[in-house]
Design a binder for these strands. Sequence first.
DNA 1: GATGAATGAGGGTTCATTCAT
DNA 2: GATGAATGAACCCTCATTCAT
Lengths: 206, 206, 206, 206
Amino acid sequence: MKYSTGKETKRKIIDATFQLMADKGFDALSIDDIMTSIGRTKGSFYVHFKSKEELLYEVMRTRLDRGHGQMAEEILKELSKDNCNVRAILERVTDEIHSSSGQNRLTWAFAFYHLLIHSRKNEFVREWLESNEDQWSNFLRMIVKRGQELGQIRTDVDTQTITNMCMAIVVGYDILFMLNPQIDFSEVNHIHDWMFVNDQNPKNEG
Amino acid sequence: MKYSTGKETKRKIIDATFQLMADKGFDALSIDDIMTSIGRTKGSFYVHFKSKEELLYEVMRTRLDRGHGQMAEEILKELSKDNCNVRAILERVTDEIHSSSGQNRLTWAFAFYHLLIHSRKNEFVREWLESNEDQWSNFLRMIVKRGQELGQIRTDVDTQTITNMCMAIVVGYDILFMLNPQIDFSEVNHIHDWMFVNDQNPKNEG
Amino acid sequence: MKYSTGKETKRKIIDATFQLMADKGFDALSIDDIMTSIGRTKGSFYVHFKSKEELLYEVMRTRLDRGHGQMAEEILKELSKDNCNVRAILERVTDEIHSSSGQNRLTWAFAFYHLLIHSRKNEFVREWLESNEDQWSNFLRMIVKRGQELGQIRTDVDTQTITNMCMAIVVGYDILFMLNPQIDFSEVNHIHDWMFVNDQNPKNEG
Amino acid sequence: MKYSTGKETKRKIIDATFQLMADKGFDALSIDDIMTSIGRTKGSFYVHFKSKEELLYEVMRTRLDRGHGQMAEEILKELSKDNCNVRAILERVTDEIHSSSGQNRLTWAFAFYHLLIHSRKNEFVREWLESNEDQWSNFLRMIVKRGQELGQIRTDVDTQTITNMCMAIVVGYDILFMLNPQIDFSEVNHIHDWMFVNDQNPKNEG
DNA sequence: GATGAATGAGGGTTCATTCAT
DNA sequence: GATGAATGAACCCTCATTCAT
């Protein structure tokens, strides 16, 4: 049909952009590319967005945010229990990160790291990414700290460093994955074999 | 320096491009930007390069290659000794990676990950990166394997996975570093505290 | 009001256009600007006008016409009297010109001279302006001629030239006014001090 | 020839713009229009100007400035003489205004009044016009004042007002001329017949 | 009457590339 | 080697206009 609802077209534009920016990056993506890919003409883009930049922000908010909001509360409640299994919690979080990026993890990864690169020249994007990372960092640190308090996580390395290592290995696997999509992403959890003290350690990779 | 020609201007172009592409990325960089920054005019670019793409390849070869060639031979010789200290070797390799990126690590990181992103749409770049990664992967695996043979590295996780983890944590710290340049890059080595078996583990700095 | 239809929205559109075109000119004015300013949306513009051009003509007719029709008859009757005071009549006409442009003289002036400029590329506008000017010219010439016949206006310069001078000084003050809105528009009448013969010249206001 | 000197092309662009903006106005003029009219393509415009706006300023400076600088000094010297003929001086100034607008007075007038209109939305243009007008106003006032001091110009109207009237009538004739190019522009000088006291008034040409 | 999605032409601007000088 | 004028394609964005709802 020639006339769709605004909401639908807007969603299509965001979806298409997310897909396409994984390949070419946001800058190299033309509005014509986007609109043609959804069967519309260039001019009508501006019915839905004030500018290309606004589109980027929308894509960030709706497609690239590895938000943990929904999960966070449950986790915090779980953590406060005396007998909580911190390793199980941590692995749940890692899984969530994977699955939250949607079915097409590679697409997500390229789009996301495009954004990281883009942040160098766009303050707004940079702040958004920093805040994103802060949230994750704080969230993870809380878990690690609790693990150490409960004697489940080793204490030979300090809390912040362990947190950084966890984050680094997750994003590092993103990068390896982009270079070689055959990599088994679940390997990430092996670091837990070392991080957690032995008697806590019955699990042996998936 | 590994410049293939002795031409001074050509070298200047490559250096300037490497510096500038960290900020804006290669695509967003215009030939005018580059040539102006070295006090020349646009037209003379084509005296030195057939195209902008060729320039990218030249930058890759001379500035973004985390080559390990020089070091590799020495390492292999060292590894073959009966009493070699694998942890020391590994840390030397990690240090080399850091320092090989030059004084300005952040510049290097942005430029390199620009390239990674760029690889999605450029076969040549993709192959170059894959080959780059293969070399490193093979090299590291050799070291890890030797460490396991000698009983210095734990064997509860298989060789390839440990290799991947080492690589992931190195590139992961690159990414964290891009998000937050205050991060202490030497933390990377803490994974060795866990990876190596205890009596091998005298080092404890932060 | 001289709006041809009773339609409220149509009137609003015309008014808004008149106001807005003083700032940006008619060409630079978008239909979106106009409709937004009256709290309607772009699409409904075409319920009221066939095209943007038609709107211009409507604005011309209803807001930019310095028509003298109403006044003309009275003046003619007055002029035919033996003892008529031509200077008083002329000043009444001048005042009428000022006040006919509405409260916001500056708005009127910019809009009108926009139109004059526009006339260069639009035959219809040009003809309208020419006819407008002809009417005024004829009307004024009649007054001047009568003044000369009665010995009230000097005869050292011929009728048509005096008429032109009167018109020029009126529109000239429009222009000075646009450049410097502090100018005292009533100065225009000082030319009468010279134009009329001395014993006719008791008036001296500023 | 395909490659001209920059100076020549720049001049051609300015000339063409001056000609074309009389018809369509500066805004309605596209860079494509301009460049096509001089046998070049749109892209090369930016070799010569940073932006379309910069072109406007250049046209203003080189084509629309009714500068009086050259003449001013001579006039001032003349004025200081005891027996100077102020009317002759004033008529020389008026003539200069006419001729300084070049051969094609109508073109000049439309371009100039386009600019005046444009000033409403461009601060820089507005200031330029104001300063332009100030210079003229000051210059003319000096002449009028001297004329009054010497008893050559009537004193029943104050200096500033006479100055304004002179300016108004000059620009007013510009406008009449735009409406009707047949008008005899030299009529402007007839106001001098009234402005100067009688015994000074031997001149009577049309 | 009004809405707002869609169109298509065109505008200013950028840029890799070519080429006469 | 270097310059800088010129090209032509592409880009983001604007806008008068149309039309289904």
